[in-house]
Amino acid sequence: MITVLLVDDHPVVRDGLRGMLNSEPDITVVGEAGSGLEAVAMARALRPDVILMDLRMPGMDGADATGLILGESRASRVVVVTTYETDSDILRAVEAGASGYLLKDATRTELTNAVRAASRGETVLAPSVAGRLVRQVRNPVTQTLSAREVQVLGLVAKGQTNAEIGRTLHISEATVKTHLLRTFNKLDVSDRTAAVTTAMERGLLP
């Protein structure tokens, strides 16, 4: 029997997951947690085979909780189940030691298969997530954006022209262009729209 701990700050999500998993003959939910801190305590007490971990929760998030849990014991396997699939979210979870990353639109079959695979020590990734990780490995961000570059790009995202950005930040239009060119180079893109989209995907912009 595969034992599972559910971690999500939304009770209705936990209810749905518990219903799906407990209907399987070889899987049983042994506990539920509504926060990262609670998850750490329950994982320590229950030692479940698999932990289904939400990523964004108030207080301690899922990536930090995963790091703490697996830092104490590698007996459990953590599979992130979240609505978020930005590069920064994925990388933080994987770097923390998560064995899998699924999105909440996963089917019952995908979810139960992921639990079984994780319990065997296998890695489980949603196809879109796997693709993002491959792209990230092939094209890593070797430089982070400066605070000013993030400011400029944030105003681009709001639809401001270079001239408007210059007035907002009290800098010249030429300086705005320089910041944008440096940003394009760091993100390996060639235009404003691609820069904003890529920065959002990588968690560099909200």
Score class of each variant (00 low, 15 high):
102 L>M: 12
102 L>V: 10
102 L>W: 12
102 L>P: 02
103 L>C: 05
103 L>R: 02
104 K>W: 10
105 D>C: 07
105 D>R: 05
106 A>I: 05
106 A>R: 05
106 A>L: 06
107 T>F: 07
107 T>C: 03
107 T>D: 08
107 T>L: 07
107 T>K: 01
107 T>R: 01
107 T>G: 03
107 T>N: 03
108 R>V: 15
108 R>K: 12
108 R>D: 11
108 R>E: 11
109 T>A: 12
110 E>R: 11
110 E>F: 09
110 E>I: 09
111 L>K: 00
111 L>C: 02
112 T>R: 04
113 N>D: 13
113 N>H: 11
114 A>K: 01
114 A>W: 01
114 A>Y: 00
114 A>V: 06
114 A>T: 02
115 V>G: 00
115 V>A: 05
116 R>W: 05
116 R>V: 08
116 R>K: 10
116 R>M: 06
116 R>P: 01
116 R>Y: 04
117 A>L: 00
117 A>P: 00
118 A>L: 06
118 A>S: 06
119 S>C: 06
119 S>K: 00
120 R>K: 11
120 R>V: 04
120 R>A: 09
120 R>D: 10
121 G>D: 04
122 E>S: 07
122 E>M: 11
122 E>A: 12
122 E>I: 05
123 T>A: 13
123 T>L: 09
123 T>V: 10
123 T>H: 10
124 V>D: 01
124 V>R: 01
125 L>C: 06
125 L>A: 05
125 L>R: 01
125 L>I: 04
126 A>T: 02
126 A>S: 08
126 A>R: 02
126 A>L: 00
126 A>M: 04
127 P>D: 08
127 P>Q: 08
128 S>V: 12
128 S>M: 12
128 S>H: 09
129 V>S: 00
129 V>G: 05
130 A>K: 07
130 A>L: 08
130 A>H: 09
131 G>L: 09
131 G>N: 11
132 R>I: 09
133 L>W: 11
133 L>F: 08
133 L>E: 00
134 V>Y: 07
135 R>M: 11
135 R>I: 05
135 R>L: 14
135 R>E: 08
136 Q>P: 07
137 V>G: 06
137 V>R: 08
138 R>M: 15
138 R>P: 00
138 R>N: 11
138 R>Q: 13
138 R>I: 12
139 N>F: 15
140 P>L: 13
140 P>Q: 08
140 P>W: 09
140 P>D: 11
140 P>S: 11
141 V>A: 14
141 V>M: 15
141 V>D: 12
141 V>T: 14
142 T>L: 15
142 T>D: 12
142 T>E: 15
143 Q>E: 15
143 Q>A: 15
144 T>E: 15
144 T>I: 13
144 T>W: 13
145 L>T: 04
146 S>Q: 09
146 S>M: 10
146 S>G: 15
146 S>Y: 08
147 A>D: 15
147 A>T: 14
147 A>C: 08
